[in-house]
Every structure is written in structure tokens, then in C-alpha cells.
Design a protein around this nucleic acid. Sequence first.
DNA 1: ACCTGAACACCGTTCAAGT
DNA 2: ACCTGAACACCGTTCAAGT
Lengths: 227, 227
Amino acid sequence: MNNPTRTIISRRSRPAKEPLSKDIIVKTALELLKSEGSSGLSMRKIAKALDTGPSSLYVYVTNHQELSAFVLDAGMESVVLSNEEGVSWEIRLYETLHSYLTVLMEFPGVAGLALNTIPIGPHSLALTEYILERLHEAGIHSTSAAWGLDLLMLYASSVAFEQASRAENGTTLQAISASYRSLNDKQYPMIASLQSELITSDGEERFRWGLEAILQGILQRQSKFGI
Amino acid sequence: MNNPTRTIISRRSRPAKEPLSKDIIVKTALELLKSEGSSGLSMRKIAKALDTGPSSLYVYVTNHQELSAFVLDAGMESVVLSNEEGVSWEIRLYETLHSYLTVLMEFPGVAGLALNTIPIGPHSLALTEYILERLHEAGIHSTSAAWGLDLLMLYASSVAFEQASRAENGTTLQAISASYRSLNDKQYPMIASLQSELITSDGEERFRWGLEAILQGILQRQSKFGI
DNA sequence: ACCTGAACACCGTTCAAGT
DNA sequence: ACCTGAACACCGTTCAAGT
């Protein structure tokens, strides 16, 4: 098959422009999202990055919202489903959701999509399946498992969304603490007395705290009511 | 001072246009949000509703984001802080957060703002103070109270946001259940087996379930670690 | 079958000019 | 001090026209 006389068949001179495809559109969109934040996810910018006009994209994607759903799922590809041997379901769940959070924060804008979009792409489904497996291991079944899944993903997504959108808006912690400090402590005594606790933000520890609170809540509700 | 000869001084003929003010801008914006969804919250539409050009708004508001923050707080005015006598902190908290959820869903778009924006307006602060009071009653203090507050508000806001944005996108429950039904149950056995539970959606009951799970989680973490 | 240009109906924001 | 018009730099989407 490998005829030596045809050695220099050379890469057949590629057309100046590679043809478009859903795949490279989604990939380009994801890169733009990473480099420019959620304003990078615009039909026009994606088109420009691909050296074409916005109308060209509509051959591969029916509208901006559908593209967003694809981008979300593509982003989910890099979530690591923790699968070490001999590690408790709880730790594996935490590690995985932490990875999910990290991915969402790496691509600002994807977090918004995660709340907007029904996660039915293959990578999202893999994550969903994984979480349900861990809950099953924990003895959480049926309605508790379904609603618990929802609660856990909602938690991680909204933490990421809150974080990302405040970062994009340039909301500094200082601005928040300044506004709390200026409060009338007669009118808002609880807020005033909890000032420093409200501002504290080791994100990592806080995220874990919330996750464990939710998990314990789910477990306890289940054992109490046997739902 | 009241000279009878000047009786018919009459309401001095008002100018054809009432002067603008931050107040009526915010009120108009809130109405548009209610009637048109989150796309109603645009400088141009608000201006048109006030029969002026968009540039006029910038006298009273520095930009769209600041206006959004005002609108969010104005929306919070109608949250009912449950204050019946002899009712447990838990029920009062549930009722109040349910009212918060209802308000957020009545104004689609406000839910997004609640996640975007630091809630430092007077009505938001009143709600914050109220929740901290109830947590205090429940014996939840310090870091647990601060983080618990955050978790509860994040929960209600994100449930509303998810609901509202799916409503705006026209995502039907049927679409979701159809996509779950079409799944390969070898690849996603857990999802397949929990199909009906995943789709179930008595919003009310589900919201309450999540809220109680979170509260129990907070209470238990506190008693366990004494944070 | 795919790509393009031009157009339509929108955005937020600025700024010189008017009263 | 307030309001206006016009402009700038953006959006998503459509559609007739080209290859």
C-alpha cells in the first residue's frame, strides 16, 4: 500500500479555510469563554474567531441557546469523577463536586449555563450518574436521591455562578465589608454582630461546609422519614 | 397667610412631562420586569416606557448594573417577614423564604439579580437580619449562622433562577422526561431507574424538602463540631 | 450543501448641543 | 440642572444571493 514513488503526495493542499463543524464551533466558543468571560460567548465573536460571519454558524447550530447547551456539556468533559479505590463515598463525592466547581469557575459563564440549561449532554449525564451512584452507596434512594442530586448540583452551580458573576462585575470583598461596616447597628444588630463571620471567605472551606451540611441533611431526613 | 382672594391659584399647571427621578425609573423597571420578563430590564425599554431617550436615565443612575441593584431591592419590598406570635422559628423561616421565592418568581429576572448582586439595599438587609434572628432563635451562632444564611438564600435564589430561566426558555417538563426516557439504561442505569423520581416536581413540596434538609444539616453540623 | 453580505431589530453608553 | 439626538460599538437572527 505504501508506494515509495508516491512519497511526496504531500498533504493535499488544504483549502485556505477548513470547513466549519459543530465541533470546532463549540471548541472555539469554549476557548473564548475561558479567555474573555461570558461576554466571549457571542455568535459574532465566535464567528470572527473562525474568520467567518455570524450567519455561517447557523448551519451547524439552530440558535445561541442550543450552542450554549453544547458548550456547557463540552466544559463538563474536564470534570474528574473521583474513582480511587478504598475511598469513602463521601470523600469521592466531595472531590468530584469540587472538580465540578473548579471547572465552572475556570469557564466563567458556564456556571450560568448550568443553571439555565437542562444538563442532558453525555458529559453532564455521566456526572449525574456518578452522583447517583455515590448517593446509592450512602444508602440514599428514590425521591431522596433524586432531590438530593438536584440539591447538590444546584449548590455547586450557584456557588460558582455567584462567584463568577461577582468576579466579572468587579465586586470586591472590600466593597462588601465596607458596606456592612457602615450599617446602623441599632437597625441591624444581628448583621452588625456577625460582620466578620459574614465576610470571612475561605472559599474552599466554606464550600465544603455547605456540602457536608447538605449531605447530612439529606441523610437525616431519610432516616427520619424513610422517604 | 391664606389670602382668600388668591383662592384659584389652582394646581400650578404641571409641565406636560413629570420630571424623572430614580424612584419612578426603578418602579417602571420593576413593572417591565414583571410584564416582559428579564428582557424588559433594558435601558432603552425603560426609557421608552417613560417617554424619553435612554441617555436621560444616566442622570439618575450610573449604569445598568446599578439600576439592577436598585430594582432587586425594590422587588424585595414585597417579601413578607413572617411574624405571627407563638409560631416556631422553623415555620416562620420557611414561610419567609417561601415568600422570598414567590417574589423572585413573580419577577423573572430578579432571581438572576439576586445571585449577581450583593444585597445591600434596605429591604435585602431587612430580610438578612430576619433570617439571622431566626437562626439565632434556633441556637445557630457565629460562623454557622453566617454560612447558613448564605446557604439558605443561595438555595432560594437558585431555585427561583433555575425555574424562571427555564420558564423563559420554554423548557417544558415533557422535554426533560422525553430525553431521560430515550437514554441507554446500560450506560446510565441509575438515571434510568430513577426516571420518575427525577422528573417529579411538586415545586412546593420539593422546595420545602430542600429547605428542611439544609436546616437539619446546619443544626447537626453545629451540634457535632460546635463551630 | 455550504458560505456570505447585507439587513433588521435590538443592546449599553457617551457626548455635544440644547433649554 | 436636566434633557435630547445622534453616534459608537456591540448583540442574535434571517434571507436572498452566490459557489
